[in-house]
Design a protein around this nucleic acid. Sequence first.
RNA 1: GGGGAUAUUCCAGAGUGGCCAAAUGGGACAGACUGUAAAUCUGUUGCUUCUAGCUUCGGAGGUUCGAAUCCUCCUGUCCCCA
Length: 426
Amino acid sequence: MKTNFVEELRWRGLLHDIMPETEELLNKEQVVGYIGFDPTSDSLHIGSLSQILTLMRFQRAGHVPVALVGGATGMIGDPSGKTAERSLLDEAQLQKNVDGIRAQLERFLDFSDAATGAKLVNNYEWMKDYSFIAFVRDIGKHLTVNYMMAKDSVKNRLETGMSFTEFSYQLLQGFDFYHLNTTMNCKLQMGGSDQWGNITSGTELIRRKSGKEAFALTTQLIKKADGTKFGKSEGGNIWLDRTKTSPYKFYQYWINTSDEDAENFIKYFTFMPKEETEQLIEKHRTDKGARLLQKRLAEEVTVLVHGREDYEAALAASEVLFRGGLADLAAMNEQLFLEVFEGVPSFEISRTHLSSGANIIDLLATHTTILPSKGEARKLIQAGGVSVNKEKVESIEKVYTTDALIKEKYLLIQRGKKLYYLCYIQ
RNA sequence: GGGGAUAUUCCAGAGUGGCCAAAUGGGACAGACUGUAAAUCUGUUGCUUCUAGCUUCGGAGGUUCGAAUCCUCCUGUCCCCA
């Protein structure tokens, strides 16, 4: 069953800007469309998830998605949305990042030989041997500086300054589009709304250089209602790579979505059909405490990114951690126990500390670095913010011995409600 | 080159000789309520051997019983004139 791509983006509230006649084109024929990914890190984070989903929706609508990894453009640095000059990445790091991102993208899109099989390209391939003279003559000639300066990404930087390197970024991205248009008949470039300027440089270049038509479509940038940046938590970015953000933490990020954001996010980040989504939102409004949207959202996204098995584990872990007690922890088998606490900061402490009895303050600030100083440990305990093995620590005099160990090996320390630390003895 | 201003704890910003570990606001962390949400309220926010002690107010010296506060030099930042 094929969906109407533009229509779908529209009801999901994802459509930000679209060039005239793009929708007609998409309804008329199978289109090759691409989105570029910046290799600024060796893993994508959930900020890029929206774009990955756009490509997936594009594919499901019967079109051919192309994911472009910016091996070349990554060397330049996109000035869009940036207020200061970016630092450049070295080649080795960039290669590593490109490889990492490619591996991740392959999990989301169908790269088979089917009619809608996705393609993955790296613009370094066609940029690396392109000479500067050729670039300036063949590409630069077609766009005026005036045109380039009119872009917001450039205009905003006229005061503070911008290097020629970053100024030329839009030409490089435009050249990508031109290249894909010529070699793969790619007619559409998509991206976040901050990419509109760069994308239209491409459509303009194609129109002037080869007289062909090219189209553009941008999606809404994801914003959170409270103004904090989407995709960040205390620990930094939420990554798609499980070694950087454990499935448990990933799941937790989504389950903690605020009510205000949940209605949007369920549309942005899932493939749930319109009817079902609307019903669920309706149901959620009648009983917000049940957090139907957050649960469903966390489920859908975690399954998509990490698979059902990891989702089940994250769910089980959450149940035990937030509703269970010491008994539940002790009852878990060791493998599951370790899985639950995978990615949680852990500290090795020597058995001798415990056999002679370790004071809670020392446990927090001396034997481990859970808290930076004894003073802070003392204050937090007095404020009721520390739990050991799911039980609140009542006194700063509290002493723990080997008797307290779970499975004779682990001590679970909790700071606040959500931060866990695992101490183990060898 | 000349003249002036400024440097405070995570940030902004008070403090101009003892009442200063330093107001206030923000942020951060924790607690209560609740739904692992939001809002609200409360507490904490230099270190320790914690009803006390110790080390901090750009750096180095000095004056004084006593300095974030006064003096000297140095360093950084900003502004004005050339």
